[in-house]
Computed example of a mutant assay.
Amino acid sequence: MAMNEVGNSNFWTTVLKHEQPVVVAFWATWCGACKATMPAVSELGDQGLPIYTVNVGNEPAIAYEYGVTAAPTLKVFDQGKVVKTITGRKTKQELESELAEFL
Results as ranks from 00 to 15, higher is better:
73 T>I: 07
9 S>T: 14
71 A>M: 15
23 V>R: 00
69 T>K: 07
93 Q>R: 02
11 F>W: 01
46 D>K: 10
60 P>N: 05
95 L>I: 04
60 P>H: 05
71 A>S: 14
94 E>R: 10
21 P>D: 03
73 T>F: 07
40 A>P: 05
21 P>Y: 01
89 R>C: 09
40 A>H: 15
81 K>C: 04
21 P>W: 02
63 A>L: 11
10 N>E: 07
45 G>H: 03
42 S>G: 11
69 T>F: 06
73 T>G: 08
60 P>T: 04
46 D>C: 01
46 D>A: 10
13 T>N: 14
38 M>I: 15
7 G>C: 03
15 V>L: 04
82 V>F: 07
42 S>Y: 05
4 N>R: 15
94 E>D: 15
46 D>I: 00
72 P>N: 07
32 G>R: 12
86 I>E: 09
81 K>E: 14
16 L>C: 15
78 D>E: 14
64 Y>M: 14
34 C>A: 12
39 P>G: 12
58 N>G: 10
54 V>C: 03
88 G>M: 09
98 E>A: 10
19 E>H: 09
16 L>I: 11
48 G>Q: 00
1 M>R: 12
79 Q>W: 03
79 Q>Y: 04
29 T>M: 13
19 E>R: 07
74 L>Q: 03
71 A>E: 13
77 F>K: 06
75 K>A: 11
65 E>I: 01
69 T>P: 00
91 T>N: 02
46 D>W: 00
51 I>L: 00
3 M>F: 08
54 V>P: 03
78 D>V: 06
67 G>E: 04
67 G>I: 04
79 Q>S: 12
57 G>Q: 14
81 K>G: 03
69 T>A: 10
7 G>S: 12
30 W>I: 11
45 G>K: 03
53 T>K: 15
23 V>L: 11
24 V>Q: 02
32 G>V: 14
33 A>F: 02
14 T>F: 09
96 E>G: 10
93 Q>E: 11
40 A>L: 05
6 V>S: 06
6 V>C: 08
56 V>C: 09
94 E>P: 11
86 I>A: 09
19 E>A: 10
30 W>L: 13
29 T>R: 14
64 Y>L: 13
84 K>I: 07
80 G>F: 10
103 L>Y: 04
51 I>T: 00
15 V>P: 03
78 D>P: 04
1 M>W: 08
58 N>W: 08
5 E>F: 12
51 I>K: 00
47 Q>F: 01
74 L>D: 00
57 G>M: 12
10 N>L: 05
